[in-house]
């Protein structure tokens, strides 16, 4: 049997992510992996990884402590994006606490009707910690009920992953001259959609939303690995990879449109329209298959764009009013107390 060869090319960060993952999860006897990173784009600017970064590094066997130390990392509890109405902060973790399956904001809405309440987003521990500049360090985060991503130095992280790929058997090359491959993974910038056809897998466009570059490239690698088959006999897998990648792209475009349209209610994107309509009607945010953004991010995004539900969930009425007010007060106090704790050394 002849050797199977994969060539990964494009910006250093992206080739590092894909290369490291394939080196760990695909390379083996009878296979070779070559990476051609464009290191010119690898500045030291920080970039964001989302909360699935933990799973990604766990699968590679790269300790989070090592990554954060080598790459000047700090924890990130949310994504910040600019909208036409100003900045929006999308937390990775729920705002407040759900109760009996009912999201917190329904209780907040009811409480707001009977007494003064702080703004909804001030019940987000993630956002309040970041606002108070009290983002915890890695060693502290396990004690808190919040999801986190990482802000990393782009160049250092690219180098870390490329080195990791090399240690796990990949070749890192200056150029692709003379290297043929059964599959070329093209991580370069493009406006064309994601597709895996014949011998080329194109990752597709990268959104400007912080965290999306890492997410899209990482999930492309995960998906490719999960659908691995002989490279000369994988037509069904190619179709499935493309279907899933396109679905992911659609979900990202939904969020982009929500954030950038001057009037998001004019959207013609069916899934976004569904989300906005249902949220405005009853405060629920329906999800599609293969969502990219978590429910708290959608909630914060629609909230930032000025959407408010016309009613709250009837089940929020099950909590006696005095208990409701007391619960919210206690919750807010706990969040405030946490934002006043001393900074870690």
């Amino acid at each position: 049997m002849s050797e199977e060869r994969i060539l990964v090319e494009g910006p250093a960060l992206r080739t590092g992510v894909v290369g490291a993952y394939l080196a760990k999860n695909w390379l083996g006897a009878g296979r070779s992996l070559a990476i051609v990173p464009d290191t010119g784009a690898a500045s030291s600017e920080p970039f964001l990884t989302r909360s699935n970064v933990q799973r990604f590094h766990a699968e590679l066997g790269l300790p989070m402590e090592q990554v954060t130390k080598q790459c000047g990392g700090s924890l990130a509890l949310s994504t910040s994006v600019q909208t036409t109405d100003g900045p929006a902060h999308l937390p990775f973790s729920p705002v407040g606490l759900a109760r009996n399956g009912v999201d917190f904001h329904h209780f907040w809405r009811r409480a707001r009707g009977v007494s003064d309440q702080p703004e909804l987003m001030s019940f987000s521990l993630s956002l309040e910690l970041e606002r108070a500049d009290r983002t915890p360090q890695l060693a502290q985060i396990a004690q808190l009920p919040i999801e986190f991503g990482l802000r990393l130095d782009r160049r250092a992280y690219s180098q870390t992953l490329l080195s990791f790929a090399k240690q796990n058997g990949a070749e890192v090359l200056a150029d692709a001259d003379g290297h043929s491959a059964d599959l070329v993974v093209d991580c370069g910038d493009t406006d064309a959609g994601p597709i895996w056809r014949d011998g080329t897998l194109r990752i597709g466009p990268i959104s400007d939303i912080p965290g999306m570059e890492w997410h899209v490239v990482g999930s492309a690698a995960l998906r490719l690995s999960a659908l691995m088959a002989p490279l000369n006999d994988c037509a069904a897998e190619q179709r499935e990879w493309t279907r899933l990648a396109k679905a992911e792209r659609e979900r990202i475009l939904d969020m982009e449109e929500l954030l950038v349209l001057s009037d998001p209610t004019t959207t013609e994107r069916p899934a976004l329209k569904r989300k906005l309509d249902v949220f405005a009607a009853c405060g629920k945010i329906p999800t599609e298959d293969y969502e990219v953004f978590a429910p708290p991010e959608w909630l914060a995004a629609v909230w930032a764009r000025g959407f408010r539900p016309r009613r709250y969930d009837r089940m929020a009425d099950l909590l006696p009013e005095v208990d409701l007010i007391g619960w919210l007060s206690q919750l807010h106090s706990q969040i405030t107390d946490l934002t006043k704790q001393p900074r870690a050394a």
């Binding site: 088959a229 002989p230 006999d233 069904a236 293969y290």
Partner: peptide, 10 residues
């Protein structure tokens, strides 16, 4: 083809 199962969330 190779035993992969297309999963969905809903």
């Amino acid at each position: 083809a190779h035993g992969h199962v297309s999963a969905y969330d809903h």
